[in-house]
C-alpha cells in the first residue's frame, strides 16, 4: 500500500503493508532513528512521537492511519547545531543516563508543553505516566521539562513543529 507521510514538515512516499507500525516505517524506511523500540506493546513510551499535537505510541500505531496527519519526531525538535528548547533543557539538566527513553520523554513533554506552557509537577507526572525510565533519572527529567517550559516562554513564541530532521 502506497502511503504519503508528513514527518517533521517533509513529505515521504512509502510502500508498505497497511498494518506496519509507524515506528518501523520511521526507523527502517525513513532512517529516523530517534524514536526507539522498547517493548513493542505500547507500555513503555520509548517509541512516542507527536501526531497532530498528541503524543502517540508509534509501535502500536498502524501506518495506514497516518495519511494526511502531521507527524513530529525528536529529530523535528532541533538539530545538533541548533537544539530546540526541549533538547537544550535536557542537555543543560543532564537528564539522560543511558538515553534510550529520552526521545519518548521529550515527545510526550513536547505534546504537553504545546498545550500547557507552565505545567505543574503533577501535570508533568500525569502526562509522563506511561513513559518508563529504568536508569532512574526521573527527577532530572522533571527538571528538564520545567526548564524547557521556561526556555519556550523566554523565546516568546511556541516552538514550531516544522524543522526538518
Amino acid at each position: 500500500m502506497a502511503i504519503s507521510l508528513n514527518v517533521n514538515g517533509e513529505t515521504h512516499e512509502v510502500d508498505v503493508d497497511p498494518a506496519t507500525p509507524l515506528l518501523y516505517v520511521l526507523r527502517n524506511d525513513l532512517q529516523l532513528n530517534g524514536a526507539k523500540f522498547g517493548c513493542g506493546l505500547g507500555q513503555c513510551g520509548a517509541c512516542t512521537v507527536v501526531v497532530d499535537g498528541e503524543a502517540v505510541l508509534s509501535c502500536v500505531t498502524p501506518v495506514s492511519l497516518m495519511e494526511g496527519r502531521e507527524i513530529t519526531t525528536v529529530e523535528g525538535l532541533g538539530t545538533i547545531e541548533e537544539p530546540g528548547p526541549l533538547q537544550a533543557a535536557f542537555i543543560e539538566q543532564q537528564a539522560a543516563q543511558c538515553g534510550y527513553c529520552i526521545p519518548g520523554m521529550m515527545m510526550t513533554a513536547h505534546a504537553l508543553l504545546r498545550k500547557n506552557a507552565q505545567p505543574s509537577d503533577q501535570e508533568i507526572r500525569d502526562a509522563l505516566m506511561t513513559n518508563l525510565c529504568r536508569c532512574g533519572t526521573h527527577m532530572r527529567i522533571l527538571a528538564a521539562i520545567r526548564r524547557a517550559g521556561e526556555l519556550m516562554q523566554q523565546a516568546g513564541a511556541p516552538q514550531t513543529d516544522r524543522r526538518a530532521g
Binding site: P18, A19, T20, P21, G40, L41, G42, C59, V60, T61, P62, V63, S64, L65
Partner: peptide
Amino acid sequence: AAIYAGACAGC
C-alpha cells in the same frame, strides 16, 4: 483488520 493487526494484535 489493518488497525487490529497493527494496534491490538501485539498484546
